[in-house]
Write a protein that binds this DNA or RNA. Sequence first.
DNA 1: TGCAACTACGACTAAAATAGTCCTATACTC
DNA 2: GAGTATAGGACTATTTTAGTCGTAGTTGCA
Lengths: 161, 161
Amino acid sequence: MLRLTKKADYGLMALKHLAENPHGTAQSAKDIAEAYHIPASLLAKILQTLTRAGVVISHAGLHGGYSLARPASEITAFEVIRSIEGPLFIASCTTVHGDCDLLGSCTVKEPLRKLNDTIRDLLNEMRISDLCEESKAGTAHIRSSHQNSLVTLGSSAGSHA
Amino acid sequence: MLRLTKKADYGLMALKHLAENPHGTAQSAKDIAEAYHIPASLLAKILQTLTRAGVVISHAGLHGGYSLARPASEITAFEVIRSIEGPLFIASCTTVHGDCDLLGSCTVKEPLRKLNDTIRDLLNEMRISDLCEESKAGTAHIRSSHQNSLVTLGSSAGSHA
DNA sequence: TGCAACTACGACTAAAATAGTCCTATACTC
DNA sequence: GAGTATAGGACTATTTTAGTCGTAGTTGCA
């Protein structure tokens, strides 16, 4: 449920890759794509989108490529995903303007809007630098301040699969 | 981003409808579908799925239909969505078994898994009865304990297109 | 100056998921 | 047994996602 598209996945991976690049030098879409075995031309388009969104900086020409526009700690997962996937809403009936196909007859829109806000907020607090820490530190923490209110549910959720 | 399918939407709406049914008598898929202007045959299939999942009880024959298998307060949004959409994971590369298309090369799987867990937990705490309260009480609260830490971002998210 | 390596971007095709329909069988009530 | 309902599989249509291609523009360097 609630799936990210591959493009968003690839985008996050590429940004993480750039963030981990020690020298901050530009890396070509092709090189990054090869590192993760993803289609180079597709990743190129994704990085172009992220360039327009101001998340990365592009550098054309020989030895060109992409680099982060800001420190990894200042780039949120939310802006990356929204840049790539566009502004969507969890309830499929609702559009950007808050409209609803079903108009008055849709009764779940409001409750879902709150859920949507919460998820957006979670993504807003997740940074590219967090992705790096995760893989380095083994099992880390996305945000310690959340843990008391949110991660409590880890136990109550054991009933799935 | 992170969109629910229409089927899940319809399913939640139908369950909310059943939960609000004062007498607890069975309601036919056709009647519910007409109330919300959604395709009757599609809703019928969704309700059949929910029947198999043990969320609703079906009653064939004249004056038959569907009713909740349990009190609305004991049915979570999570089980409804998972029943309808199947067990998915937020990272598109990951399957039910925790596999990843990209295998070792996917670096964002782990951090996203935590996000996935958190979202699942949120859905687990959201009950059908909550959907009903929302629309009655006007603007209610899914979980008051969330508001201080999360809903702050409503403002910070206004910066996009 | 000219080539090679890169980004930029729109048009396009392919594949997969979602949405919705149809048909037949079966169950139940009156 | 007639009528109304669920059960469910097969099917089609639509939309979204994924990925490709071609061309144009930019830059660095020999």
